[in-house]
């Protein structure tokens, strides 16, 4: 009997499901970053608003990369339903605490995909996911460094104004701490 399942796609059902979940997570991240950008804009943190808008676009780019990969391999990429986006945040610092939590969640999901790829011997997807895992080193590093600005500079006086100005400048060098 012909193997129609394999003719359709080289992705296993489990991996396709996990990748579609990841699409949803990336779309959710993109929407949350946009809501954060709006909050920062409303509260006069212009630099942070710009930074968060860029982050939102980046997350959408990640989503599309996975979306295209699934379709390229003959799978069924699902346009995600994104709901329950928080529109209000407890504070300026709270925004970036949530951003770090979101990045940690993304990393843990990507690790789960990599783990499943190894288990199912799907080395193509394993190779594909490496780019995202590497990207997460940068994402988490930047999110942590931004959060540390709140302690290093301090929020008193013109502190928040200074922090806002510094946020878009935080970047990741190949070795941590490099300027």
């Amino acid at each position: 009997m012909k193997d129609l399942l394999r003719l359709r796609t080289s992705l296993s059902e489990e991996i396709e499901l996990l990748l579609n979940e990841q699409i949803k997570t990336e779309a959710y991240s993109s929407a949350v970053y946009l809501a954060m950008a709006s909050y920062c804009n409303r509260n006069g943190f212009d630099y942070s608003a710009g930074y968060l808008e860029n982050q939102s676009n980046e997350e959408r780019g990640h989503m599309l990369k996975i979306f295209k990969y699934i379709n390229d391999l003959g799978g069924r990429a699902i346009s995600p339903e994104v709901v329950n986006i928080p529109q209000e945040f407890e504070s300026f610092k709270g925004v970036f605490e949530l951003a770090l939590q979101q990045e940690i969640k993304v990393t843990s999901q990507l690790n789960r995909i990599a783990d499943q790829c190894m288990r199912l011997k799907d080395y193509t997807t394993f190779e594909f996911i490496q780019w995202f895992l590497k990207e997460q080193i940068e994402e988490e590093y930047v999110a942590r460094r931004i959060l540390e600005l709140f302690d290093v500079i301090g929020e008193e006086g013109t502190g928040r104004w200074q922090i806002d100005k510094q946020i878009p400048k935080v970047s990741y060098g190949e070795s941590a701490g490099e300027e």
Partner: peptide
């Protein structure tokens, strides 16, 4: 390259996906 389901007096043809 399709599947044929016969159930409850109804027959349907499906692509694999």
């Amino acid at each position: 390259n399709s599947y044929i389901l016969e159930f409850g007096g109804t027959t349907c043809s499906f692509k694999a996906s």
